[in-house]
């Protein structure tokens, strides 16, 4: 079964284009310098439309997660993590933690992570793996 994929909109196209070329793109406000996610063409902190797109470091820490024991058909048969990571730049985002066992022992809160991308047809999804792994 095909993976459930996002359908980009004009406001988010840059993010998904970035994933395809291996770049995690965030936005920040040029007025108040706030970085934010998910993408939108204005700053949620101050309302300014003067925002810019920049490549994030890809560094993050594990903020919270579950291990889904009843995966959706497109997610395979094995239990898998659904996580929220705290990006080094501040915003948090949902993802899957890959490159390590999908167990409470292997998935420790606050562990350092780095972004990795996996391509599914026209879309690349940003996943995170243990840093240095």
């Amino acid at each position: 079964m095909d993976r459930t994929l996002p359908q980009p909109t004009p406001e988010t196209q840059h993010f998904w284009d970035g994933c395809k070329v291996g770049e995690l793109r965030l936005q920040r406000c040029t007025a108040c310098r706030e970085s934010y996610f998910p993408p939108r063409p204005f700053c949620p902190a101050c309302g300014s439309r003067a925002v810019e797109i920049y490549p994030a470091s890809g560094k993050a820490t594990l903020y919270s997660f579950v291990i889904n024991h009843r995966p959706r058909p497109d997610m395979g048969a094995e239990p898998h993590s659904i996580a929220v990571v705290a990006l080094a730049e501040g915003p948090r985002m949902m993802t899957n933690i890959v490159g390590c066992p999908q167990t409470p022992e292997a998935l420790q809160l606050d562990m350092p992570l780095e972004v990795t991308f996996e391509t599914f047809g026209a879309i690349a999804l940003p996943f995170f793996k243990p840093a240095g792994a």
Binding site: P6, Q7, S64, V66, I82, M94, L109, I123
Partner: peptide
């Protein structure tokens, strides 16, 4: 959720199914 909605783009692709995998997300941190 529509795949173009914010949830459809930034949560659904990671395997959330329904409340048991969404409402529970903050709990480890809590």
């Amino acid at each position: 959720r529509a795949p173009s909605s914010l949830m459809g783009q930034f949560e659904m692709p990671f395997g959330v199914t329904s409340p048991p995998t969404m409402f529970t997300i903050p709990v480890m941190r809590y």
